[in-house]
Amino acid sequence: MATVTLKGTEIHTLGSLPNEGSKAPDFQLTKNDLSSVKLSDYEGSRLVLNIFPSVDTGTCAQSVRQFNEEAAELDNTIVLCISKDLPFAQARFCGAEGIKNVEMLSDFRDGNFGRAYNLEFTDGPLASLHSRAVVVLDENGTVLYTEQVPEIVDEPNYKAALEALMDS
């Protein structure tokens, strides 16, 4: 179990994020058109998994905006923004914000992504949602970098995530 805080109050996730150097757990998530996508569909591309509780909060929305901006500059890299928001809400947000350089994916169907990556909250007011985290994968699905953001209202360390791509 990992412990993070929500405005200073401890809340817990299922466990630790995948270890750097390990193979990333497979997943099946839902795209905005309601089709399914798996990790293997991205084989050959580097991935930044930007994971958060809900795009309807300020910090989560900002992380999508920031990675959208940064992603335009990255070669052979796809940013996947992952939450349990319904695909309709994700599409609405991207349309309103002009977000075009990231893919929004939803774990609303069965929550297996949150469990496989150990980032589902087990208690507190956000129980069953995803914690704020970043996982960076190389072209073969090997974990290069992880960050479990310790205070859920804080933004992730964008610079460190992107530097992990530069070092690979």
Score class of each variant (00 low, 15 high):
V37K: 06
F52K: 01
E69T: 14
I51H: 06
L17E: 03
S22H: 10
T77K: 11
S36R: 13
Q28L: 12
K23V: 12
E20K: 13
S45Y: 14
V48P: 00
I78E: 06
V55M: 07
S22P: 03
E73Y: 14
T59R: 07
G58V: 05
T59V: 15
D33L: 01
V48G: 01
D41W: 01
L74P: 08
E73W: 10
L29Y: 00
L29I: 02
L17N: 02
G58H: 11
S63W: 08
V37E: 07
D41P: 03
K23L: 13
Q62C: 06
D75G: 11
G15P: 01
N76H: 09
R65F: 14
E43W: 03
G21N: 09
S16K: 15
N76M: 10
L74N: 09
F52S: 04
K38V: 10
N19S: 15
D33H: 03
L34K: 12
L80I: 02
F52E: 06
C60M: 10
V79S: 02
V64P: 02
L34G: 01
Q66E: 15
R65C: 09
C81E: 03
T30G: 04
F67T: 02
D26P: 04
S63F: 05
I51Y: 05
Q62S: 13
K31D: 03
S40C: 01
A61L: 08
